[in-house]
Design a binder for these strands. Structure first.
Lengths: 155, 155
DNA sequence: GGTTCCACTGGGCAATCTGTTCAGTGGAAG
DNA sequence: CTTCCACTGAACAGATTGCCCAGTGGAACC
């Protein structure tokens, strides 16, 4: 797409106070309402803003344990494994990757003990040769995009 | 916290159409506006809803390559490395983990070639013994929470 | 120089939503 | 039988939204 400084500031404002409306946005940016509206529309239809989903904290839902599992898949079974993993609610995210593992997935569980259950369920399908799991202890940098936005807007 | 079916449906609705207001929410849930309002407030102040940040797509910003890097850290250098990584815009997320690696971070880059630059910058600090990177090819399950919400609400 | 295009401004309008308050209902707990 | 609590349904003023329009200024093009 292409993002200029105004778009960048708009995204920052939205990130800080997501529930503010277009009017308030335009006031803080110092532009006319129509402009803020237009920029927002452009960012949304251009795919830069994918949505405004509520960010749900799994920990607050009773799933305080996060882990990443690297899965090694038997040749040709990828599709089955993908479909299987998609049915497991505790699988929050799944990627296929290059490198020694073939897939990487983010899991949550109610406890370390419960993680065992989740992993059993994850690997409970033909096609997974090996799984190695890393439990998350700390999350020094939670998922963020603003620094990237700032960089994309400045260049 | 604790989530009942109504909270669950509310979160689902919000996930589908995040810009709808409380009034519309209450209509679709078939409850009074005050109720929807109260539920939403409870979820927000209870930490279940962390926010409504705009979800920015790095790909649309010009960063279509995603990778996960596993970092092995020299004893006692953790804090320095964390601080360093926090300054790199292309580091979207950072976790400290158990297992063979000590940290796992999510990176984005403008291209595979650009990824080299990012990784050089990431490892350009004392304290990182080894880094192994897996480039993401596909993302069969993008970050999601709704299935988990549904499970938490049903039990 | 003259013309066209485009983003932006600033304004106005009706319709809608928000924040807030209030009285009343029904179920659960004591 | 009483208290508590979540929910309902309604009301109100004030703010916001979606929409439309005329005017301005800069950049690109002829």
């Amino acid at each position: 797409m292409g993002i200029d400084r105004l778009d960048g500031r708009l995204l920052e404002l939205l990130a800080e106070e997501p529930r503010i409306g277009v009017l308030e946005l335009s006031r803080r940016l110092g532009v006319a309402r129509g402009t803020a509206q237009a920029r927002l529309d452009r960012l949304t239809s251009g795919g830069v803003i994918r949505g405004f989903g509520p960010e749900v904290d799994p920990a607050a839902l009773g799933y305080p344990v996060t882990a990443f599992a690297t899965l090694e898949i038997k040749q040709g079974q990828g599709a089955d494994v993908r479909a299987h993993l998609a049915t497991v609610p505790e699988v929050l995210e799944l990627h296929t990757t290059t490198g020694s593992g073939d897939m990487l997935c983010r899991l949550v569980a109610r406890s370390n003990a419960d993680l065992q259950r989740v992993i059993d369920r994850v690997v409970g399908i033909e096609g997974i040769v090996r799984a190695s799991t890393a439990i998350v202890m700390e999350n020094p940098v939670p998922l963020r995009v603003i620094p990237l936005v700032r960089q994309a807007a400045t260049e």
